[in-house]
Amino acid sequence: MSTTTVGIKLEEQFESEQQQRETAKLGMWTFLATELLLFSGMFISALVIRTLHPDSVTAVALHLKFWIGATNTAVLILSSFCMSVAIESSRLGLQRIMVRAMLLTAALGVLFMCLKGYEYYRDYVEHMTPFLHWRRYELVGDPASRLFTDLYFIITGLHAIHLTIGIGLMLVMSWLASRAGFLQKHQNRIEIVGLYWHFIDLIWMIVFPTLYLLNR
């Protein structure tokens, strides 16, 4: 396929293809700005809890699985690279490479979730689940440590929800995009989904230091 076959179908409220492309992208960027503020509410809570109880936060951070967090960051960096491959090949009209790259992206996302699940399991085994009232809490003598432990679960949980949505989107898009003629009509959708995926990656790059790194 040559580059001339790649394009988008014009909707009735737009006058030109460029206008439609830029509109869709601006919409996605605006949405991502809202997502950033959503997560920042939690990052600021983390900072406040750290300001109020610095020692308790350090105690919790030493119980977090630093290596799993770091590995997961690397996994997401790799998945972002795969997404970039998908976007670049969609621009060139290379449909097959694009679909494979997207599936690989989703697979790396699933790998992230598996590691995350294992991390939660380790937390459970090591009694770092203070909200489960039937489990003993490891740092029971330090009530303020609960705040940061709980926040850890909320932040990673909300990120995991976003990533799950991302994986779902990626699978649906790769299914739709594997059809003939997709790139002639909806090439820009790949770029839009790509922006979302990169953004989840970006959020994790803030989550990792906020929870695991800065408090050690």
Partner: peptide
């Protein structure tokens, strides 16, 4: 688009600075 990305981070810093 760059402006919008910038505004997003600006607003995070408003929230951060004034809360802290």
């Amino acid at each position: 688009t760059r402006l919008f990305a910038f505004i997003g981070f600006c607003w995070v810093s408003i929230l951060l600075t004034l809360t802290m």
